[in-house]
Computed example of a mutant assay.
Amino acid sequence: MDFPKDDYLTLEVDDLDFDVLTGIYSEETHLPQPLRISVRALLSMADRYDPATPLSASKNYMDLKHAATTALPKGQHFTLIEAVAEHIIETVLMQDAKVRHVQVKIVKLALSERGESIGITMGRWRK
Rank of each mutant, 00 (worst) to 15 (best):
Y25W: 08
D50V: 13
L72G: 08
I89K: 06
K59A: 15
A52M: 13
V39W: 06
T29C: 03
M94A: 13
H101Y: 12
S117K: 06
I37N: 00
A46T: 02
I89C: 00
I81C: 04
E28P: 00
A67E: 09
L72S: 03
K105W: 03
A57N: 10
M122P: 05
A67P: 13
K59M: 15
Y25K: 12
A67M: 05
S38G: 09
V104C: 07
Q95Y: 06
K98C: 04
L93G: 12
V84P: 08
T53S: 15
S117D: 14
P73C: 04
R40A: 14
E82G: 13
P34H: 05
L111C: 14
K59S: 15
G75H: 05
R100H: 05
H101F: 13
T121G: 10
G115Y: 00
K74Q: 11
Q76W: 07
G75F: 12
L55G: 07
R114K: 15
A71K: 10
L31P: 02
A57T: 08
T69L: 02
L64T: 07
L109A: 03
G23N: 11
A97G: 05
Q95P: 01
M62N: 03
V92K: 14
E82P: 13
F78H: 02
Q76M: 14
E113K: 04
T29L: 06
V92R: 13
D96F: 03
L64P: 09
K59D: 12
L80Q: 12
T91R: 06
G119Y: 07
H30V: 09
D50K: 02
T22L: 09
